[in-house]
Measured scan of single mutants.
Amino acid sequence: KKYAKSKYDFVARNNSELSVLKDDILEILDDRKQWWKVRNASGDSGFVPNNILDIVRP
């Protein structure tokens, strides 16, 4: 599994996007496009722009 940390707050604008808060740790589900599909600690998933994410190295 790959993880990323959010650098900023992001508010979803539709139901395919995921609202995240700065410093959230997110599991990366799909990173093939500019919007990555991620899952948060609550189990919710959706798309966020990859420019707000930093890859977390294990």
Rank of each mutant, 00 (worst) to 15 (best):
K1N: 12
K1T: 09
K1C: 04
K1D: 14
K1M: 09
K1V: 05
K1W: 03
K1Q: 15
K2T: 06
K2Y: 15
K2A: 04
K2L: 05
K2I: 15
Y3A: 02
Y3L: 08
Y3G: 01
Y3N: 05
Y3F: 15
Y3H: 10
Y3I: 09
Y3T: 05
A4C: 15
A4D: 03
A4R: 04
A4F: 15
K5G: 02
K5D: 01
K5T: 06
K5S: 06
K5L: 05
K5N: 05
S6A: 10
S6T: 08
S6Q: 00
S6G: 06
S6I: 08
S6H: 00
S6L: 02
S6N: 01
K7Q: 09
K7W: 04
K7R: 08
K7A: 08
K7Y: 08
Y8Q: 14
Y8R: 12
Y8S: 13
Y8G: 13
Y8T: 14
Y8N: 14
D9R: 05
D9V: 05
F10D: 01
F10T: 02
F10E: 00
F10H: 07
F10N: 05
F10Q: 01
F10V: 03
F10R: 07
F10A: 02
F10K: 02
V11M: 11
V11I: 10
V11R: 09
V11E: 10
V11W: 07
V11P: 09
A12Y: 01
A12T: 04
A12G: 11
A12V: 02
A12Q: 07
A12N: 04
A12E: 03
A12L: 02
A12I: 02
R13A: 07
R13F: 05
R13Q: 15
R13E: 05
R13H: 11
R13S: 09
R13T: 11
R13N: 10
R13C: 05
N14S: 14
N14L: 05
N14P: 01
N14R: 08
N14K: 10
N14E: 15
N15Q: 11
N15V: 10
N15T: 11
N15D: 13
N15A: 12
N15E: 14
S16M: 15
S16F: 12
S16L: 08
S16V: 09
S16D: 12
S16A: 11
S16K: 11
S16T: 10
S16C: 10
S16Q: 12
E17V: 03
E17S: 08
E17F: 07
E17M: 13
E17R: 03
E17A: 06
E17G: 09
E17D: 08
E17W: 04
L18G: 01
L18T: 02
L18S: 01
L18R: 01
S19A: 07
S19T: 09
S19Q: 05
S19V: 04
V20N: 03
V20L: 08
V20R: 00
V20H: 01
V20M: 05
V20S: 02
L21G: 12
L21S: 15
L21V: 12
L21K: 15
L21Y: 14
L21N: 06
K22D: 00
K22Q: 13
K22L: 03
K22G: 04
K22E: 07
K22R: 09
K22W: 01
K22F: 03
K22P: 02
D23C: 09
D23G: 13
D23N: 15
D23I: 00
D23Y: 08
D23R: 04
D23K: 05
D23L: 04
D23W: 07
D24K: 02
D24S: 09
D24C: 08
D24R: 02
D24F: 00
D24G: 05
I25G: 03
I25Y: 12
I25L: 13
L26A: 01
L26C: 07
L26N: 01
L26E: 02
L26K: 00
L26I: 10
L26R: 00
E27G: 02
E27K: 03
E27M: 06
E27L: 08
E27Q: 10
E27D: 06
E27P: 00
I28R: 02
I28H: 01
I28S: 00
I28K: 01
I28F: 00
I28M: 04
I28Q: 00
L29Q: 09
L29Y: 02
L29S: 03
D30C: 10
D30T: 06
D30H: 03
D30S: 09
D30G: 06
D30L: 06
D30Y: 06
D30Q: 10
D31R: 09
D31S: 10
D31H: 08
D31V: 10
D31W: 08
R32E: 14
R32P: 03
R32Q: 14
R32I: 06
R32C: 12
R32N: 15
R32H: 13
R32T: 12
K33Y: 13
K33S: 13
K33P: 10
K33A: 11
Q34V: 12
Q34S: 14
Q34Y: 10
Q34M: 12
Q34L: 12
W35E: 15
W35T: 13
W35C: 14
W35K: 11
W35Q: 15
W35H: 15
W35M: 14
W35Y: 15
W36E: 02
W36F: 14
W36C: 11
W36M: 09
W36K: 09
K37D: 06
K37F: 14
K37E: 13
K37T: 08
K37Y: 11
V38C: 13
V38H: 00
V38Q: 00
V38F: 00
R39M: 13
R39L: 09
R39E: 09
R39C: 09
R39G: 05
R39H: 01
R39W: 01
R39T: 09
N40I: 04
N40G: 07
N40R: 09
N40P: 02
A41F: 11
A41D: 11
A41P: 12
A41K: 14
A41W: 08
A41Y: 10
S42N: 04
S42M: 04
S42C: 03
S42Y: 03
S42W: 05
S42F: 11
G43Q: 05
G43E: 03
G43L: 05
G43D: 05
D44T: 12
D44R: 12
D44M: 14
D44C: 12
D44H: 15
S45W: 11
S45T: 11
S45D: 09
S45G: 07
G46R: 01
G46M: 01
G46C: 01
G46T: 00
G46A: 03
G46V: 01
G46W: 00
G46K: 02
G46D: 00
G46N: 02
G46P: 00
G46F: 03
F47P: 03
F47L: 08
V48N: 00
V48W: 00
V48C: 07
V48A: 04
V48I: 07
V48M: 03
V48R: 00
P49V: 02
P49M: 03
P49S: 03
P49W: 03
P49D: 08
P49C: 04
N50G: 11
N50L: 09
N50A: 13
N50C: 12
N50E: 10
N50R: 10
N50P: 12
N51M: 09
N51E: 09
N51W: 08
N51D: 10
N51V: 08
N51Y: 15
N51A: 10
I52C: 14
I52T: 04
I52Y: 09
I52K: 03
I52M: 09
L53A: 05
L53I: 15
L53T: 03
L53P: 02
L53F: 09
D54Q: 06
D54Y: 08
D54C: 07
D54M: 07
D54H: 11
D54V: 11
I55S: 12
I55D: 11
I55T: 09
I55G: 11
I55N: 14
I55P: 13
I55W: 11
V56L: 12
V56G: 10
V56Q: 14
V56Y: 15
V56W: 11
V56S: 13
V56F: 10
R57H: 06
R57F: 15
R57E: 14
R57C: 14
R57Y: 08
R57M: 12
P58T: 15
P58L: 04
